[in-house]
Each structure stands twice: as C-alpha cells, then as structure tokens.
Design a protein around this nucleic acid. Structure first.
Length: 447
RNA sequence: GCGGUUAUAGCUCAAUGGUAGAGCACCGGGUUGUGGUCCCGGCUACACGGGUUCGAUCCCCGUUAAUCGCCCCA
C-alpha cells in the first residue's frame, strides 16, 4: 500500500498511547461484580416466580422500529440514538430501549397465539448517545419485564410490585411514584387544556419552558425553573381529564397496591417521555437517599403501553404493561446505601509448593482438591514459600497445605493451621479427604 | 446539545516558573523450606496540542476526558 507511511522513528521511541474506553462506556470491575451478580440472580428468581420467560434480543434493529414506537419527536430518537448505515446500505440503530424490541418480537413470532398475557424479561445493554453523568452511561443495562396481552389492572399492580420488591430486596429504600396518562384521546384533551393554561401565563415562562410548551407540554409539570411552583399547582390536573375507564383502571391499580403494601405516592407531574405510554405510568425512586444528590434518583420505571403493539402493526387492542430497571443506577444506589454485598472470595485451603518437582505434582494435587469441591487458593507463579504464605494470609485462608521436594519423595504433604501455626504431615493421597472432613465438622459445629 | 468545576504514580493526595514527593498498593530482599509486625530496596505520573517565557507540570488558549447542573432519561 503505497499511501501508507512508514512510522517515523520518533513514534516508535515514544510510548504509544493505549486506546481508552469510549466516552460513556465503562468496564465493570471486580469490586462491583458481587452487586451485579446479586441483581442478576434476584432478577432471575423473581421472574421465575412470576412466570416470566427470558428473551434475548439483538443489539441492532432497524431504525424504523424506534422511530415508530418511541416517537419521532422524542429526544431519544431525535438526538440520542447510535444510528448508522451498514455496508449493505441498511439503516440500523443500536437499541436505545427494550420495550419496542419486545413488542416487535411478540408480533414477529406470533406470540398472540400463546396464552395471554405473554410475560417476558430481559437483562441486556442498551445505548443512548447522551452526555454521561452519575448513573447515566451511553451503554447501560436494564432489567426489563413486560406482560403483553392483558389490560387487567392487576397486571399493572404486579409489575409495579415486582419492581418495588426487587429494590427493597437489594436493600434500597424506594417509593413508587405513580400517575395515569389516560387514553391517547383523553390525554390529547388534557394537553390542549394544559397548553391553553400555560399560554395565559406565557410571560412568566422561562426559555426552556417555552420550548416545552410547544414541544412537550406535559414536561412543563416537571419543570424545575424558579417561580413555576405556583403555576404548576394551579394548572389543570390530568386526573380530572381521565376518561371513565382509565379512572376505574387507575383506582383498581391503587387498590391492589394498597393491598400488597407497596409504598407509593401519587404524582400528577409524572409524565414519561415516550410516545407509547397510556394509562398507568410509574417510577421507582430512591427514598431517604443516603446522599442528597441521589434523592429522587429514578432507579427504574415503566407503565402501560396499550397503543404500542397496534402501532407496530400487531393486532388491534393488544394491551401491555412493563417496567425497566437501570442496573448501573441500582449499583450506584447500593454503594451509597452501603448495601453492597461482600465479595465472596473465601477459600478453604491455600496450596503452597516448593521446587520444580513439587510444582509438577502440585498441579495434580490441586485438581484433586478442586474436584473434591474444596475452594483452594494458589500461587503457582511464586517460587518462595514466604511469598505464598503471604498470599495465603491475605486471602484469609484458615489452612495451608505445603508440598515440598521432601514431601514429594515421601508421598506426604504438610497441613498448616494458619491461626496457630501448628503443622502435621499426612499422606498426600488422603489429604483431600482429611480436609473435606474437617470442613464438614466445622460447618456442623456452626450450624 | 448548553453551563460550572477538575485533570500529578494502580489508588488517595502534596510541592514547585528551573522536568516532581509521601502514604497505601505492587515487585524483590533481610542467606539455604514457613505468613500476619518490622527493616531495606525497586517500579510507576505532570491527559493531549499550541502559545507566553531563556526555561512551563505550574501562566494563557484549544482539544479530550471526568464530574456536577440543565435538557432528557434507566
């Protein structure tokens, strides 16, 4: 390739810079793994109990899927999607959320023929090209649950209950903020009234609020601009504009939540940005946050989306309800609340070896331990006994076994109690059995 | 996309217009096969690019990134 320049000598001398993670993308390191695993296993257990089946979906979808479902005028679609055209000229998007995808899968695989509602869950990464902040990344994981094919308010309550219990079981103090958006028709009436109301007070509105007035009037209710409190308090309430069916539905949901003692707060200002939401909408919010900047942090949210399936070409009148929890945010909240599970790296035994012969034999002995179900630590890469015992100490191993040249010749191995320093020499063939028995005895004594 | 703050070792932080130190961590040693304490040694950094200057890690500008707030959202 004639265009390629040979690297100048200076560049070779200069240490080349290691490429770093992209902005908003991150590595999850060992210190967070226990929390992630706890979240994942809790998600698995809870979905299993409630009869949800797992779905794994592709990371890329046709861009149109999100334009049609999330809404062309939403921020997500307008400026936050990673969209590109591949070599074959197909316009595709890194999925910004899961509900539209699940709805697509429901239609595509004819799940309408299964018993309804079809309950699905996922635990996967999503992508939004946003400015990173605390608990906000460009790649983020969501645990999502969706129940498609039922308009019964009990489904709403169950989904909300699951989300709330999930956070509670993680050791987080949360409260459910809840509201109803009604049907598209009643919502339209309400928005018209809202716009009318705020137009009368146009002079009092800030620049961003004026923008909201034309673009997304519902968000005016969420405005944190100074002086808005009073205006908001006197604004028309969405509840007064709900149609009778939506009102009944909402009352039922609240009754079920009362019954199951799910802590909630009515929040008439709670409006969710995506186009497909109808009726029930909710957020799981941190309560009594351990640090002030986390107060009110939304760990997750969701709602009913009766319009989505038809919107994507599915059968008319297919109702659905779902929720999504932000995994990074839950980990963040767990850290702040001191609810991080302990790292479990407890080992039963630490294996030390000395000399080439012992190292060779040690590999086999080590396997015997592992096959015997005993958690063994090792540092085969270390040569000296001192270094190995140091590591054993650091790992808080209660017992070390030491295999040296002498022991290899004798067919023995040393068992060292790390606490007392007492040592005994045993037959190397029997050591696994001996240790296993001691562990069992200790476990029984504790029980 | 907009605004504020910040950028020195793996981590937490110092100092300085004349090219940098500590603590922790890591590696090695305190003779020949024994950890937790102690002692000694070693490794590793001025985000990047310009400008001012005899000289910049320090001052100025830009870029990038982190962080906080706005927007929005998980």
């Amino acid at each position: 390739m004639p265009t390629e320049k040979a690297a100048p000598a200076a560049d070779v001398k200069k240490k080349s810079k290691t490429p770093e993670t992209l902005r908003g993308f991150r590595d999850v390191l060992a210190d967070e793994q226990a929390a992630w695993e706890k979240i994942e296993s809790l998600a698995r257990g809870m979905t299993q109990a409630y009869g949800f089946g797992r779905i794994r979906m592709p990371v890329l979808e046709q861009t149109a899927l999100f334009e049609r479902s999330v809404g062309k005028d939403t921020d997500i679609v307008e400026k936050e999607m990673f969209t590109f055209v591949d070599q074959g000229g197909v316009k595709m998007t890194l999925r910004p959320e899961g509900t539209a995808q699940v709805a697509r899968a429901y239609i595509e695989h004819g799940m309408v023929n299964q018993s309804q509602p079809v309950k699905l869950w996922y635990f996967e990464p999503f992508f939004r090209h946003e400015r990173p902040q605390a608990g906000r990344y460009r790649q983020f994981y969501q645990w999502g649950i969706e129940a498609i094919g039922s308009d019964d308010p009990v489904v709403d309550a169950q989904i909300i209950l699951m989300a709330q219990r999930f956070c509670r079981d993680l050791g987080l103090d949360v409260i459910v903020q809840i509201n109803s958006l009604g049907t598209p028709a009643s919502r339209k009436d309400y928005i018209a009234e809202l716009v009318k109301y705020f137009k009368q007070h146009k002079k009092a509105l800030s620049e961003t609020d004026l923008k909201r007035l034309t673009k997304n009037p519902l968000r005016l209710l969420d405005s944190k601009e100074p002086g808005m409190e009073e205006l908001k308090a006197n604004a028309p309430q969405i509840f007064d504009y709900l149609d009778e069916a939506s009102k009944q539905h909402f009352m039922k949901v609240l009754e079920y939540l009362d019954e199951t003692e799910v802590p909630y707060a009515l929040n008439p200002c709670l409006v969710r940005g995506l186009d497909y939401y109808t009726k029930t909408t909710f957020e799981i919010v941190l309560n009594n946050a351990p640090s002030p900047e986390l107060e009110g942090l939304a760990l997750g949210g969701g709602g009913r989306y009766d319009g989505l399936i038809p919107m994507l070409g599915g059968r008319e009148n297919t109702s659905a309800m779902g929720a999504a929890m932000g995994v990074e945010r839950m980990v963040l909240a767990m850290k702040a609340a001191n609810a991080m599970p302990p790292r479990r790296e407890k080992i039963d035994v630490f294996f030390c070896q000395l000399g080439e012969g012992a190292r060779r034999k040690g590999l086999a002995v080590y396997e015997k331990f592992r096959e015997g179900g005993i958690m063994v630590g090792e540092a085969f890469g270390k040569g000296t006994l001192k270094a190995q015992l140091e590591i054993a100490d650091k790992l808080k191993a209660p017992v070390a076994v030491i295999l040296g040249q002498k022991e290899v010749l004798d067919g023995t191995i040393i068992i060292r109690d790390m606490e007392s320093g007492a040592q005994e020499i045993v037959d190397v063939e029997k050591v696994v059995g001996i240790i296993a028995k001691r562990l069992k005895d200790v476990a029984e004594k504790q029980a």
